[in-house]
Computed example of a mutant assay.
Amino acid sequence: MIELKSMRDKEKMRKAGLVVAEVLQILKKAVRPGITTKELDHIADSEIRARGAVPIFKGYHGYPASVCVSVNHEVVHGIPGARRLKEHDLVSLDLGAVMDSFVGDAALSVFVGEPPDDRAALLLRVTEESLYAGIQAAQPGGHLGDISHAVQEHVERHGFSVVRDYVGHGIGHQMHEDPQVPNYGPAGRGILLKPGLALAIEPMVNAGAYDVDVLDDGWTVVTRDGSLSAHFEHTIFITDHGPEILTRID
Results as ranks from 00 to 15, higher is better:
residue 79 I to E: 05
residue 96 G to P: 02
residue 65 A to I: 10
residue 97 A to G: 06
residue 94 D to K: 03
residue 57 F to A: 08
residue 104 G to R: 06
residue 71 V to K: 04
residue 71 V to D: 09
residue 96 G to M: 10
residue 85 L to D: 03
residue 78 G to M: 05
residue 78 G to D: 08
residue 59 G to C: 13
residue 83 R to M: 12
residue 87 E to C: 00
residue 101 S to V: 14
residue 87 E to R: 11
residue 80 P to W: 00
residue 90 L to D: 09
residue 112 V to N: 05
residue 58 K to D: 08
residue 84 R to E: 15
residue 64 P to I: 13
residue 76 V to F: 13
residue 103 V to L: 13
residue 96 G to V: 07
residue 64 P to Q: 13
residue 59 G to K: 06
residue 82 A to K: 13
residue 102 F to I: 12
residue 109 S to N: 09
residue 113 G to A: 08
residue 84 R to Q: 14
residue 107 A to K: 10
residue 92 S to P: 00
residue 101 S to K: 12
residue 63 Y to A: 09
residue 94 D to T: 12
residue 60 Y to I: 09
residue 102 F to K: 12
residue 90 L to E: 12
residue 58 K to W: 10
residue 111 F to W: 11
residue 81 G to F: 05
residue 82 A to D: 15
residue 82 A to V: 07
residue 75 V to E: 11
residue 114 E to H: 08
residue 113 G to H: 06
residue 112 V to A: 07
residue 97 A to N: 01
residue 92 S to Q: 06
residue 85 L to S: 02
residue 95 L to V: 08
residue 111 F to E: 12
residue 85 L to G: 04
residue 74 E to S: 02
residue 112 V to Q: 10
residue 103 V to W: 08
residue 104 G to E: 12
residue 71 V to P: 00
residue 59 G to E: 09
residue 89 D to V: 03
residue 100 D to V: 06
residue 92 S to D: 03
residue 84 R to I: 07
residue 108 L to R: 07
residue 73 H to T: 11
residue 67 V to D: 04
residue 109 S to L: 04
residue 114 E to I: 01
residue 111 F to N: 10
residue 104 G to K: 10
residue 58 K to A: 13
residue 84 R to D: 06
residue 87 E to K: 02
residue 103 V to E: 05
residue 66 S to D: 06
residue 83 R to T: 04
residue 100 D to H: 12
residue 93 L to G: 04
residue 99 M to H: 14
residue 78 G to P: 01
residue 105 D to R: 06
residue 75 V to W: 09
residue 79 I to M: 11
residue 113 G to E: 11
